[in-house]
Design a protein around this nucleic acid. Structure first.
Lengths: 188, 188
DNA sequence: CTCGTAAAGCTAATTAGATTAGCTTTATGG
DNA sequence: CCATAAAGCTAATCTAATTAGCTTTACGAG
């Protein structure tokens, strides 16, 4: 039988895909091995354990979000930048639910965790998007955290079926962007 | 040996407490049984399985949040009500992390899920808190969702160590309340 | 007071997943 | 052509959930 010839990157990439299909919580060594056409124990040649695998997916996902968000925000400012930023994040969360969950529900292992660096890159883009609003330095941290919280909560609530009513979540999303935009302009 | 004399309510209450101590994800049948002084299989006399147990904790927690929030908002309006509302939720999330996670990360089993009724009661209180702002009916859904998203995301980010920087999350929380208050007044 | 029964426990056994130990095979550089 | 490290594999162990079937206690009806 021919050899699969996998490496860590391949394994984590496959895990990320699988997570989007079955949910991050449901990601299992057995399922992943099956998907890759190898036996479960063979996975341990590439990752140390399930936690390591999931952590790897989280880093991969956070890095991907970082790139998409950076590109989306580039060259825009003010409300335009804000819309691009939030829209990109929401879109990522919807097309890659497993990866998004991975990125935002994984604990940092320490101060030198690459996941930290990856999420800092995302934060940099948020910061860049807010630049045009002329927010005072002292308020920037709070503004960034508020925006992260909002997106994050929105994605999560939508995922867990938290929005039961009729109104289209997309409409709420647009409303939210306008709400934040107005708020940021006012807090100048 | 004397009998413990447990019922479903006792079991779920103990599970809720345990979840606050070890984390909702780490809640396990074995740990709970140990805590209650019985053997693991005996738990199945009170709950059908782990999913049922966790679902029960979620309902219990959401109901508790509902009551606290109702009491906090009662008799207040405008920014005062908003502060009470958000403060209560944040406080609940901090003192009962396991229960909070249960309430907000558990999937509804269907349209007749008691969890749905419990979360609707919370939403009613949010709605009541916003009444004084004179928000148009058409915007109310969006406003409520925005507030839920914000709180939810804030709690989650704080929990997963998402706020790495120096600034005190409590300050961010206050800033957020002011931000939302101003925004709601403006969207009248 | 005594008996029948349902509820509440228990032990033993099964199953699913993760993980470890130790063996085998394939590529590849020398 | 060979040595060896990497990539797989099988077999075995461990933990947690769950099921089956037996035992014991509380408690109301006679």
């Amino acid at each position: 039988m021919p050899r699969a010839g996998l490496n860590r990157r391949d394994v984590i990439a496959a895990a990320a895909e699988l997570a989007d299909e079955v949910g991050f919580q449901q990601l299992t060594m057995g399922l992943l091995a099956q998907r890759l056409g190898i036996r479960t124990p063979s996975l341990y040649k590439h990752v140390t354990d399930l936690a390591d695998l999931k952590h790897g997916v989280a880093i991969q996902a956070m890095a991907a979000v970082g790139e998409e968000v950076r590109d989306a925000v580039a060259g825009r400012s003010g409300r335009d930048a804000l819309t691009a930023l939030l829209g990109t994040m929401r879109s990522y969360a919807m097309t890659h639910p497993g990866r998004y969950a991975a990125a935002n529900s994984t604990l940092r292992t320490g101060p030198d965790d690459p996941l930290l660096a990856a999420s800092n890159r995302v934060i940099d883009s948020i910061s860049a998007a807010l630049r045009g609003y002329g927010i005072a330095d002292a308020d920037m941290v709070h503004a960034i955290r508020t925006i992260r919280s909002t997106i994050h909560g929105f994605a999560l609530l939508q995922e867990t079926d938290g929005f039961q009513w009729s109104a289209d979540p997309a409409d709420t999303f647009d409303w939210m962007i306008q709400f934040i935009d107005r708020g940021l302009k006012a807090s100048r």
